[in-house]
């Protein structure tokens, strides 16, 4: 296993940030840790990258124990923290040379690994990191995390606050890195990115809600979901929230995702109820569950 985590718990004073976490990441897997702010994602990253010691449990990364072999782990992993943490007053090239040097290597030695990403920022190589745009900073940070050819790459919310175009490009880069044999553990609050991982763990309040492939997680959704629409979205949500057979109701794009608490549900009954609430242009149709539906059902 590239990463194996057994019964890890970690507390900060009164707050339990991680509660009995266990899972494994296979070699060359692209594994996603999906959850909102405060779920414990960053704490787990810090434990795995040997920057924080857990209160309970054990963890191994690239075959090494996070406590005993912490020095070996540091040589074998790349870590891109959520907050930009390169030297703002060094240029792109200086930052990269610096990281290569402390890992005892050179940019040239592993250039094939970073080439795709580096050529996109190379025209600005003499610009200070502090003066770069968000997208360029992100690419530089990824280059710095890769310059020593790590076996395992940790990316903590690399796409937070990034627009959809740059997010898509970033995930394409990750897929290419995976093809070069690197194991990747990546965290994100964007549920749509979950579908791009081989396997995912849904995490909230320090606990793992579920671990599986994105396809399997969606299949486990226990109910039939209906897309519902009417002329006034706000009134529709308000009405469905007081309907006695409602199991869940969540806005989803132009529709509301509705599940019913009955086993013998007939959409016509729902339509009649919505009509009785003085709403019009009603549409009700079956739809498939998404990762986000599953997350909300589990987190309820």
């Amino acid at each position: 296993m590239s990463i194996s985590i057994s019964n890890i718990s970690k507390s900060y004073k009164k707050v339990k940030a991680l509660k009995d976490i266990s899972f494994e990441v296979k070699p060359n897997e692209l594994f996603g840790l999906i959850g909102p702010d405060g779920a414990g994602k960053t704490t787990l990253f810090r434990v795995l990258t040997t920057l924080l010691i857990a209160n309970e449990g054990t963890a191994r990364v690239a075959g090494f124990d996070v406590i005993k072999d912490y020095k070996s782990i540091r040589k074998s992993v790349g870590y891109m923290p959520g907050r930009f943490s390169l030297y703002q007053d060094l240029t792109i090239q200086e930052n990269l040379t610096f990281f290569a040097t402390i890992f005892g290597t050179t940019i040239a030695e592993n250039y094939d690994l970073i080439k795709d990403i580096y050529i996109q920022i190379e025209p600005f190589k003499n610009r200070r990191a502090g003066k770069l745009s968000g997208g360029m900073k992100q690419k530089l940070a990824l280059c710095c995390a890769l310059v020593h050819k790590p076996k395992v790459l940790f990316l903590d919310e690399p796409t937070t606050g990034v627009d959809p175009v740059s997010r898509k490009e970033f995930w394409e880069m990750l897929k290419r890195l995976q093809q070069k044999g690197i194991t990747i553990l990546v965290s994100t609050p964007y549920m749509d990115e979950a579908a791009l991982c081989d396997r995912i763990a849904l995490i909230q309040n320090g606990k793992i809600l579920e671990i599986d492939t994105p396809e399997a997680i969606v299949k486990h959704f226990p109910k039939q979901i209906y897309n519902v629409r009417a002329n006034n979205m706000y009134q529709l949500i308000k009405s469905l929230n007081i309907y006695k057979y409602t199991h869940s109701v969540y806005p989803f794009g132009e529709f509301v995702h509705y599940t019913d608490s009955r086993t013998n549900f007939n959409p016509e009954d729902l339509k009649a109820f919505i009509e009785s609430e003085n709403l019009s242009n009603i549409e009700i149709e079956k739809t498939e569950a998404t990762i986000e539906d599953t997350f909300m059902e589990l987190a309820k």
């Binding site: 909102p36 702010d37 779920a39 609050p189 706000y234 949500i237 806005p251 986000e292 987190a299």
Partner: peptide, 19 residues
């Protein structure tokens, strides 16, 4: 940005209400 999907939706319900 960054909040869980349920809270994100509660937030949008507040937006609908204001509108």
């Amino acid at each position: 940005g960054g909040v869980d999907p349920i809270t994100r939706r509660q937030f949008w319900e507040m937006i609908y209400k204001a509108a």
